Computed example of a mutant assay.
Amino acid sequence: MPVLKPKKLYYGAEDVASILDYSKQHAYRVIKKLNAELEADGKFIRPGKVPIVYFKQRFGF
């Protein structure tokens, strides 16, 4: 039986920087802002990472 690789659920700073053509430092600020929005809605967050679904929703991808 083949081993399935789990689907990626979060973007890190390198992913965000690459997608938005930002520096890694700026990407961390974007992630922090998005996580603050999620936390204000009572959602669980992972520091330094942002859910891919939420990122795409906020940036219109």
Rank of each mutant, 00 (worst) to 15 (best):
E39G: 01
P47F: 03
Y11K: 06
G60K: 13
S23Y: 05
F61H: 00
P6M: 12
K32W: 04
Y10V: 09
D41L: 11
I19W: 06
H26G: 00
D41I: 01
K56D: 10
G42H: 04
E39F: 05
A27I: 01
A17T: 09
F44A: 12
E39L: 11
K7A: 15
E37R: 12
Y22W: 14
Y54W: 09
D15G: 08
I52H: 02
F55T: 05
A40R: 13
E14N: 14
H26M: 09
L34R: 01
G42R: 06
Y28R: 11
G42N: 03
A40N: 11
V30E: 02
M1A: 14
P47K: 07
Q25G: 08
N35D: 04
V16C: 03
P6L: 09
E37Y: 02
Y54P: 04
Q57D: 13
K7F: 10
I45E: 07
R46V: 12
V16G: 02
R58F: 01
Y11M: 07
L4H: 12
L38E: 06
A40C: 00
Y10G: 06
D15C: 07
Y11L: 11
A36M: 08
K49F: 04
K33F: 04
K8E: 10
K32F: 02
L9T: 14
H26I: 02
S18E: 14
G42D: 05
I45V: 13
L20H: 11
I52E: 01
A27W: 00
V50F: 05
V53N: 08
K24G: 00
R58E: 09
L20I: 11
K49G: 01
V53L: 08
F59T: 12
G48C: 02
K56T: 04
L4A: 14
F55P: 06
D15A: 13
Y28M: 05
A36D: 12
G48A: 02
Q57V: 03
A36H: 04
K49R: 12
Q57A: 08
N35E: 03
L4C: 10
A36R: 13
V50Q: 03
A17M: 07
M1L: 08
K43S: 11
Q25N: 13
Q57F: 03
A36V: 00
K8M: 09
H26L: 09
K32E: 13
R58Y: 01
D41Q: 14
K24W: 09
D21S: 15
P2T: 13
V3H: 15
Q25M: 07
P2L: 12
F44P: 08
A40W: 00
Q57E: 12
R58M: 07
K5R: 15
I31L: 02
L4T: 15
E39D: 09
Y10N: 13
R58H: 00
N35K: 05
I31Q: 01
F44C: 07
I19H: 07
L20C: 08
G42Y: 07
I45Y: 06
Q57Y: 08
R29W: 07
Q57R: 09
K5V: 15
G12H: 05
Q25Y: 10
K5N: 15
F61K: 11
G12I: 03
V30W: 01
D21C: 11
E14A: 15
R58K: 14
V16M: 05
L9E: 15
L9Y: 14
E14G: 14
K24D: 05
A13P: 04
D15T: 12
E14P: 07
G60P: 00
L38F: 05
I19Q: 10
K7H: 12
Q57W: 06
I31T: 03
G12F: 01
I45D: 03
V3C: 14
P6I: 10
